[in-house]
Design a protein around this nucleic acid. Structure first.
Length: 351
DNA sequence: CGGTATGATTTCTG
DNA sequence: CAGAAATCATACCG
């Protein structure tokens, strides 16, 4: 790809000298006049070669003179002719190579992670977590979510800034080269198609940078993600109050400790944990209660007493009682019973 | 530090 | 897919 090399270093002198092969002398000169022609061409070349040594104004003037030179059209035609002969091989290099699969993979991932693509979910955390719960995606731990999302937004912003910079640079450079080629097309034969091809080549070169940007963005997201997952795996005990609420519900619905979705949501909200955490908790609680009912009996009795006192104090309307929030669920999920009557939760809900 | 409690995950089942 | 059961991994506490 000699052509490409020339174009990426578009010094006019170089360009011209490369376009004028040695084969000139002889082949194109018309017999007797060949020596004279050679001389003139040599002069022209000499002028071209020294063009970079001159000041800009001077160069412009020279260029103008050159363009107006009486030999210019002839020279141009010759160049065209040569080009016609040599360029044939380039003709059908139009192969439409498919988009890079690697790049596509990166793109897909960035979109999936919400870094690229449309701005996702407006600020409403409630709505977001609600959708997450509804769509049943990964277990949502809403508390850590905000941190994660903030970091993701940061990455997103950096990514977009860089992408913009990249695009700008690419466009600038492309425009520059195109202008240069247009300019040069007055002195050497350049077809629009070739300019197009050049633009394609530049784009391809630049896309390597783009790829790198996307790659590192992906890496950053992955690191963030793994850290987030690690953090998620790190267990934090629920607050005393949350455990209290859950346990209280569990023992006051011992005959059927399977809270409905609504109740789970309610409990989750009250305890400041997610719905899936509530589900986990009840899953764990049921299995561990069943494992040794004997031991759990104490706890059960404790909570039975508590429930009783709560109920009685509710009669006297004492809202300051910390466990005075039991009644709310009764409407949603009836069938509460007393811990004394252990049953196998298997089939019947003793009503 | 070791043992237990406990939240999360995995595997299995109906 | 919800729940049971087993298991993992960490927090917590004496």
């Amino acid at each position: 790809m000699d052509d490409q090399q020339r174009l990426t270093h578009p010094s006019q002198a170089q360009v011209m000298s490369n376009v004028m092969p040695q084969a000139y002398d002889g082949s194109y000169g018309q017999g007797d006049h060949s020596d004279q022609r050679k001389q003139e061409i040599g002069d022209v070349l000499q002028q071209i070669m020294t063009i970079t040594d001159q000041s800009l104004d001077e160069a412009q003037a020279r260029k103008h003179t050159l363009n107006c030179h009486r030999m210019k059209p002839a020279l141009f035609n010759v160049l065209c002719e040569i080009k016609e002969k040599t360029v044939l091989s380039i003709r059908n290099t139009q192969e439409e190579e498919p988009p890079d699969p690697q790049l596509m993979r990166l793109d897909n991932m960035l979109i999936a992670e919400g870094v690229a693509g449309p701005e996702k979910g407006g600020g409403s955390t409630a709505a977001a977590s609600a959708t997450a719960a509804a769509s049943g995606g990964q277990p949502d731990s809403a508390i850590e979510h905000s941190d994660y999302r903030a970091k993701l937004a940061q990455i997103r912003q950096i990514y977009h800034t860089e992408l913009e910079k990249y695009e700008q640079a690419c466009n600038e450079f492309t425009t520059h080269v195109v202008n240069l080629l247009r300019e040069q097309s007055r002195t050497r034969p350049i077809q629009p198609k070739e300019i197009e091809r050049m633009v394609g080549i530049i784009r391809k070169k630049f896309s390597a940078i783009e790829m790198q940007l996307k790659q590192s963005t992906c890496e950053a997201v992955m690191i963030l993600r793994s850290r987030f997952l690690d953090a998620r795996r790190k267990r934090r005990n629920f607050t005393k109050n949350a455990t209290e609420i859950l346990t209280e519900y569990f023992y006051s619905h011992l005959s059927n400790p399977y809270p409905s979705e609504e109740v789970k949501e309610e409990l989750a909200r009250k305890c400041g944990i997610s719905v899936s955490q509530v589900s986990n908790w009840f899953g764990n609680k049921r299995i561990r209660y069943k494992k040794n009912i004997g031991k759990a009996q104490e706890e059960a009795n404790l909570y039975a007493a508590k429930a009783a006192s709560a109920a009685s104090s509710q009669m006297v309307t004492d809202p300051s009682s910390p466990t005075g929030q039991g009644g709310m669920y009764m409407n949603l999920n009836g069938g509460d019973s007393y811990p004394g009557g252990e049953n196998s939760w298997g089939l019947e809900d003793s009503e």
